[in-house]
């Protein structure tokens, strides 16, 4: 080992210092500089300051919506992914129909569709079920039936519709990630699990999924960043997240530059720190394997 180190040292001395400039991560420095510039503006300029303190309140909702949507998308996506590798024709077909349909529609359209088409339909179904239940209900069920029957469209907030829309859209992507992960595990693993008497589901639960999920952690992390960025689309539902607050602030102050510089800055802080986190996980996984 010491021999190679010495050779490396000698070689590094042979390269002139100008050559070593190419090793500096310039891109990171440039980004840091741009960030520092915005921070400087926020400190010295009152209009940047107002924009920042108004907009930063939207970060909470952006992050919250993204986290909840992604959690639902992971669970639902896992079920769909299991459907994609299932030998059960009904399960496989249902999963495939859902995934193919949802993946084929732009997310913006999906969000609008969930908010304005699926939600009212769902409410009508609930009302109808509630009325039906009320005619036969006894005891504590009466209250539930009444609630269901009188549930109104404004009871379902836009935040809920946005979360559901994002979750159901991303579930289709996560399903394919899980499917790829499961299929990347050698067939022999399931055979070994079955041959010690495990059922298919035990084999999935204890043998295949623990390995598959480790493998798909990096793509899942990337998809979370993707979802966080796509959460800006829910501004069309007038949810008070970062982008929507940006629109409001711009309309109120006409300070276009300040507003959108700050919005972009806030998004980048979120996404870049997340992608650093994903890189960290990736490196740890590579080390362990």
């Amino acid at each position: 080992m010491s021999v190679t180190t010495k050779t490396e040292e000698r070689e590094s001395k042979l390269i002139p210092w100008t050559g070593r400039l190419s090793e500096v991560p310039w891109w990171a420095l440039i980004i840091l500089l741009m960030g520092a510039l915005i921070v400087y503006f926020i400190i010295v300029s009152p209009s940047y300051q107002t924009a920042f303190f108004f907009l930063v309140t939207g970060v909470k909702l952006t992050l919250g919506v993204s986290l909840i949507s992604f959690a639902i998308a992971l669970v639902f996506g896992l079920v769909l992914g299991l459907g994609r590798v299932s030998k059960n024709v009904v399960f496989y077909t249902l999963s495939s129909v859902y995934i193919e349909l949802v993946r084929g529609v732009p997310i913006l359209v999906l969000l609008i569709y969930f908010a304005w088409v699926v939600t009212p339909l769902f409410l009508q179904l609930m009302n109808w079920l509630g009325t039906a239940l009320a005619s036969v209900a006894v005891g504590p069920l009466v209250g539930l039936a009444e609630n269901m029957a009188t549930l109104a469209i404004q009871d379902v907030t836009m935040v809920v519709r946005a979360i559901v829309g994002l979750a159901f859209a991303y579930a289709a992507f996560e399903a394919e990630v899980f499917r790829a992960g499961i299929q990347s595990i050698q067939r022999g693993q399931m055979e070994a699990a079955r041959s010690v008497g495990m059922s298919y589901f035990q084999g999935m639960r204890y043998i295949i999924l623990p390995q598959a999920i480790r493998r798909v952690l990096p793509p899942l992390g990337n998809d979370f960043i993707g979802l966080l960025k796509d959460s800006s689309l829910i501004s069309v539902l007038a949810v008070r997240e970062l982008t929507h607050l940006g629109k409001l602030h711009r309309a109120r102050t006409f300070e276009t530059f300040e507003t959108w510089n700050t919005v972009t800055f806030l998004y980048l802080i979120l996404t870049l720190s997340l992608s650093l986190f994903v890189k960290f996980i990736e490196r740890r996984m590579a080390y362990e394997e």
Binding site: Q186, G188, Q189, E191, A192, A193, R194, S195, V196, G197, I207, P210, Q211, R214
Partner: peptide, 16 residues
């Protein structure tokens, strides 16, 4: 399968 044990050519141990 609980009554029949099997040993494979490529072992198929659970790596995790």
């Amino acid at each position: 399968r609980t009554e029949v044990g099997m040993v494979f050519q490529l072992f198929n141990l659970f790596p995790h």
